[in-house]
């Protein structure tokens, strides 16, 4: 059987090379191309397809559950810490909350300062990041200039570099002129917080803006130019409105990165209470002195702030229709 099949195919091809023969199925008799006599089993297909979706779903589900589990654990821990305070007698919910760790954290002057500094510095660094990311992302997406690939690679450095190294590098940079002249105003001062956050967050914003501009069809811009627009007008009237959602995503991402920034801050801005302390530093400082419930309370405040910012930008970025 096998031989006859192979022979026939080899005879059918003048150049029937051995390599060609090996590609043919060994045990089939017919090579005429009619495969309708061998239907695929529908049950088998259904089982295989179900297995495919279930296995993908289970693998993906693990990660989603991990995220939810972490947040729920924080919440459960906080509830367990808050409720015993209420045992004493009948008090209002407000009373219970204000005596729990979150209430105590919010009442602490130093933590209030750290919340305020976090919100202000994150917003500043996010806005700065977008201001830099829009032109940079646009140039990288639209123009072929010498050294473009190099610039592209340099922009990955803050993403792949350990954050601590970025903080240290900033500190060393400010040893040299002309930066050293500004060092007394920046290093270990509040501006260092924003600069350290910006140094990392901006790289993420640039990536987001570049992929946004990559996805926008250059045709609309070309039409605008043919209609008489200068480059600036075409960008302002046509490209930027289309990139609106990308700008909001970049803003959110940069804000969230800034909120989570810790390593560079510790090195470049220090962790002085009431001065350069932001929320992530607070968590670290409270953990260091064994104040776990305070650390968890501040973490939950950060979670709440992140959720609020995420929802705000989602609402803002909703498509207009």
């Amino acid at each position: 059987m096998t031989e006859s099949g192979t022979d026939r195919s080899a005879a059918g091809r003048p150049d029937g090379s051995p390599a060609r023969e090996r590609l043919l199925p060994r045990d089939s008799e017919e090579f005429s191309g009619d495969f309708s006599g061998q239907p695929r089993s529908a049950t088998r297909l259904t089982v295989v397809n179900l297995a495919f979706f279930w296995s993908f779903g289970i693998i993906g589900g693990f990660y989603v559950l991990l995220i939810l589990g972490m947040l729920l654990a924080d919440g459960a821990y906080m509830t367990a810490q808050t409720l015993p305070a209420a045992d004493g007698g009948e008090r209002s919910w407000f009373g219970i909350l204000s005596e729990g760790p979150i209430g105590r954290a919010l009442a602490d002057r130093r933590i209030r300062y750290s919340i305020r500094l976090s919100m202000i510095s994150c917003t500043l660094s996010a806005v700065l990041s977008v201001l830099v990311a829009v032109p940079l992302g646009y140039l990288l997406a639209r123009h072929r200039f010498p050294g473009r690939r190099l610039v592209d690679a340099i922009l990955d450095i803050p993403i792949v570099l350990p954050p601590l190294v970025i903080g240290l590098s900033l500190l060393i940079l400010f040893q040299y002129p002309p930066f050293s002249r500004l060092a007394p105003l920046i290093v270990y001062q509040v501006p260092a917080v924003v600069l350290a956050q910006f140094a990392v967050a901006c790289a993420f914003a640039v990536r987001t803006m570049k992929s946004t501009f990559d996805q926008i069809d250059p045709r609309c811009e070309q039409v605008a130019i043919s209609l008489g627009c200068s480059r600036v007008q075409a960008f302002g009237h046509v490209v930027l409105p289309e990139a609106r959602r990308g700008v909001l995503t970049a803003l959110t991402l940069a804000w969230a990165r800034s909120l989570g920034e810790f390593g560079p801050l510790l090195i470049f801005a220090g962790a002085t209470r009431m001065k350069t302390e932001v929320l992530s530093t607070t968590v670290f400082l409270e953990m260091n002195v064994g104040n776990i419930d305070m650390a968890v309370a501040v973490s939950l405040i950060m979670v709440a702030a992140a959720i609020v910012v995420l929802m705000l930008t989602r609402l803002w970025g909703a498509p207009v229709s």
């Binding site: 069809d217 045709r219 609309c220 070309q222 039409v223 605008a224 130019i225 043919s226 209609l227 008489g228 627009c229 200068s230 009237h237 046509v238 409105p241 289309e242 207009v320």
Partner: peptide, 20 residues
Amino acid sequence: NPAARGVGYVPQDGALFAGM
């Protein structure tokens, strides 16, 4: 410069401006 040529241009898919 293309903006100074004064040529009307209709591309294949129209390339209309989103949101306008």
